[in-house]
Simulated assay, not measured.
Amino acid sequence: MISHIDHIVLTVSDIEVTLGFYRRVLLMEEIAFGNGRKALKFGAQKINLQTLGQEPRNRAQVGSGDLCLITQWNLKEVITHLISENVKIVEGPVSKSGAVGEIESVYFLDQDENLIVVSIYK
């Protein structure tokens, strides 16, 4: 029935600060959509951004996200880039289980304390 994820939504404290962090740290592209909303695009996916209370249909909270993102870089390059952007690594590299097999992962927090995982398949 379901083939893939199209987009996810993160509830954040400040959309502009979030856009800056994800553009700088994860090299994502900022895009606008419907009524001036903002999103971060990468590959064929996007992360829509909202502030607390902007979307009354959900109960998401700031800092409740936990995202695992797959990279084409090797993890040494990822770690070097994160360090150069003053991002504190909270765990990794460590072996974990991904959607289609074993992954090697590095964990860090964004400015709202969403847990971000950057991984490669072994």
Rank of each mutant, 00 (worst) to 15 (best):
1 M>S: 14
2 I>M: 15
3 S>V: 13
3 S>F: 11
3 S>K: 14
3 S>C: 11
4 H>M: 08
4 H>D: 13
5 I>A: 06
5 I>Q: 02
5 I>N: 09
7 H>R: 12
9 V>E: 10
9 V>N: 14
10 L>N: 04
11 T>Q: 05
11 T>D: 02
12 V>P: 02
12 V>F: 03
13 S>T: 00
13 S>C: 02
15 I>N: 07
19 L>I: 12
19 L>T: 05
20 G>S: 11
20 G>W: 01
20 G>K: 15
20 G>T: 07
21 F>Q: 03
21 F>M: 08
22 Y>Q: 08
22 Y>M: 05
22 Y>T: 07
22 Y>V: 06
23 R>P: 02
23 R>Y: 00
24 R>Y: 02
24 R>Q: 12
25 V>P: 00
25 V>R: 01
25 V>A: 00
25 V>I: 01
27 L>M: 09
28 M>K: 07
28 M>T: 04
28 M>E: 02
28 M>V: 05
28 M>N: 02
29 E>N: 10
30 E>Q: 13
31 I>H: 10
32 A>D: 11
33 F>P: 04
33 F>M: 09
34 G>N: 12
36 G>T: 04
36 G>W: 04
37 R>P: 00
37 R>Q: 12
38 K>N: 11
42 F>K: 07
43 G>C: 09
43 G>Y: 03
44 A>P: 07
44 A>T: 12
44 A>S: 15
45 Q>A: 06
45 Q>K: 07
45 Q>F: 01
48 N>W: 02
51 T>E: 13
55 E>W: 06
55 E>D: 15
57 R>N: 11
57 R>W: 15
58 N>M: 03
59 R>S: 11
60 A>S: 12
61 Q>M: 15
62 V>K: 03
62 V>Q: 01
63 G>E: 04
64 S>T: 03
64 S>G: 14
65 G>V: 00
67 L>T: 06
68 C>W: 03
68 C>Q: 11
68 C>S: 14
68 C>M: 15
68 C>R: 12
69 L>P: 04
70 I>R: 09
70 I>L: 13
71 T>N: 09
71 T>E: 09
71 T>K: 04
71 T>C: 09
74 N>F: 06
74 N>V: 14
76 K>T: 10
80 T>G: 05
81 H>P: 05
82 L>D: 03
82 L>K: 11
83 I>A: 09
84 S>V: 09
85 E>Q: 15
87 V>D: 06
88 K>G: 01
89 I>F: 02
89 I>P: 03
89 I>E: 00
93 P>V: 12
93 P>D: 11
94 V>L: 10
94 V>I: 15
96 K>V: 06
96 K>I: 07
97 S>R: 13
98 G>M: 07
99 A>F: 08
100 V>I: 10
100 V>D: 05
101 G>A: 11
101 G>H: 13
102 E>P: 04
102 E>V: 14
102 E>Y: 04
103 I>G: 08
104 E>C: 05
104 E>W: 06
105 S>M: 09
105 S>K: 06
107 Y>Q: 08
110 D>P: 05
110 D>H: 01
111 Q>L: 14
112 D>Y: 05
113 E>Y: 10
113 E>D: 12
114 N>M: 05
114 N>P: 03
115 L>T: 13
116 I>C: 01
117 V>K: 12
119 S>Y: 02
120 I>H: 07
121 Y>T: 12
122 K>N: 13
122 K>S: 14
